[in-house]
Amino acid sequence: MSNDEPKGPPRRDFLGIAVGGSAAVFAVAAAYPVARFIEPGTRPRPGPAVVGKLIEFPPGTVRSVMVDDRPALVVRAQDGSFRAFSAICTHLQCVVGYSPERNQIECPCHRGVYSMDGLNIGGPPPRPLEELQVTVNEGTIIVSAVG
């Protein structure tokens, strides 16, 4: 640590480097598990979600549900057919909502507008809403991500 020592600088330097080096390696080794612990990676997705019974969805219903831990909109058209969309805006991930007055899906954050087919028809959204798959099994409505 001092420069005025005439003898043995190589050994002293070596020890200094050894201490500094091993301390640095140690710090990295300690930081690695901490970093891994903090970011635990991806858990298996919950998968398809039962969102309700057919009887709860008369034609013309739009309902917000949770699928895969994320919000989604289930739309039952007047002809009885089902469609479901991820309720996450393709612009900046706000949650979109159904507007019954204008019969369209709107994002309140930056005035994004989607048609009831999920198409981006106004505002900043760059893509249509992601479409989800709807299965009706013995009166139970199941929504799952496509693919």
Binding site: P33, V34, R36, F37, P40, G41, R43
Partner: peptide, 9 residues
Amino acid sequence: GEIPYGDLV
């Protein structure tokens, strides 16, 4: 069981 290095922590 699940979090990496959780048992260590």
